[in-house]
């Protein structure tokens, strides 16, 4: 492989990793925009989505429904989005909303506790939940070569789907009436309420969308890496949050930019720096800190003036 080949192959690796991060980052951006809450359990919803799909797949296999791969994939996505979405709304009603008015640290801690609870519940309740779980191979496995670079059909599908999901979320938020309500709440909850927006319902919908997107990300992650495990959510949450901030919290396209930037940073740090593989996250987090200090609104964020 020539230098250029390696560069291109690593860029593809970075983009794929980045799109996974972006999908998690979208959720953070959404929650922060609407509720001013950093939902640290979001990474665990991501994991939960993957496990829901595994469960649905096991059920489908048990009843002998395993025909067309495309049908099964659609069934897994929709089923898991609904289930994870419902869990998201229920947990939001029970434990996130009651503390959304409390100081920021309280909501942060509640969502962290929620993350622990989800993680441990999956581990204890799923059969042999502490082991890594293989994901069924349902995506087309072929590949084609451009020079020495391997491009897999699977990668193209996952990348395309990831961008499509994020654009769909953007459409929902910026082009529909429901989205207008969400944006209104994001700007000023009380004012939105006076204009006739049902606050509770809007918050419910936000969590439904956020959890469903996390589920999509979890399943795609499962398909791409071929496995999932109950404890992958914690790190994913931290990175997703970082990516959302780099891109600009509150901006949906910012999530894409931030996620992909973080993915590329990690990949190239691992590939190019001496001792890069073991220290790539040190490098990535250092960049995060620099961003926060020198451009806290992120790449696509707007300048915010502090109200006195």
């Amino acid at each position: 492989m020539t230098f250029l080949d390696i560069l291109l192959q690593q860029s593809i690796n970075g983009l794929m990793l980045g799109i996974m991060y972006s999908l998690v980052a979208v959720g953070f951006t959404l929650y922060f925009g609407v509720l001013d809450v950093i939902n640290f359990a979001h990474g665990d919803f991501f994991m939960l989505g993957g496990f829901m799909a595994l469960m649905l797949y096991a059920i489908a296999e048990a009843v002998g429904f395993a025909g067309n791969a495309l049908v099964v994939v659609i069934y897994l996505f929709i089923g898991s989005m609904i289930l994870t979405g419902v869990v998201g709304v229920v947990t939001e009603r029970v434990c996130v909303k009651p503390v959304s008015k409390a100081p920021m640290l309280i909501s942060l801690l509640v969502t962290l506790g929620l993350g622990i609870a989800i993680r441990e519940a999956v581990r204890v309740l799923y059969p042999r939940g502490s082991d890594p779980k293989g994901f069924p191979t349902l995506m087309p496995q072929g590949s084609f070569n451009v020079g020495n670079i391997v491009i897999r059909y699977e990668n193209l599908i996952i990348f395309g789907l990831g961008i499509a999901v994020i654009m769909a979320v953007n459409f929902l938020i910026n082009r529909t009436k429901m989205g207008a309500a969400i944006r209104a709440v994001a700007q000023d909850g009380e004012a939105a309420m006076m204009m006739g927006v049902d606050l509770d319902r809007t918050i419910d919908i936000t969590f439904l969308i956020g959890s469903a997107v996390a589920a999509v990300a979890g399943i795609m992650n499962g398909f791409y890496y071929g496995q999932t495990m109950f404890n992958i959510g914690a790190m994913m949450g931290v990175i997703g949050f970082s990516a959302a901030v780099i891109g600009g919290l509150g901006n949906i396209y910012g999530a894409i930019v931030g996620g992909i930037l973080f993915g590329l940073l990690e990949t190239f740090a691992a590939a190019a720096l001496p001792y890069g593989a073991e220290n790539k996250r040190v490098f990535a987090f250092l960049i995060v800190i620099l961003f926060l200090v020198f451009r806290p609104t992120g790449i696509l964020g707007e300048k915010i003036f502090e109200r006195v």
Partner: peptide, 20 residues
């Protein structure tokens, strides 16, 4: 230069850097 959620993230990032 930062506060609130942003400072939270800075310190989380610092924490991970130190452990790694």
């Amino acid at each position: 230069k930062t506060k609130g959620h942003y400072l939270a993230l800075v310190t989380i990032a610092f924490q991970f850097m130190v452990t790694i």
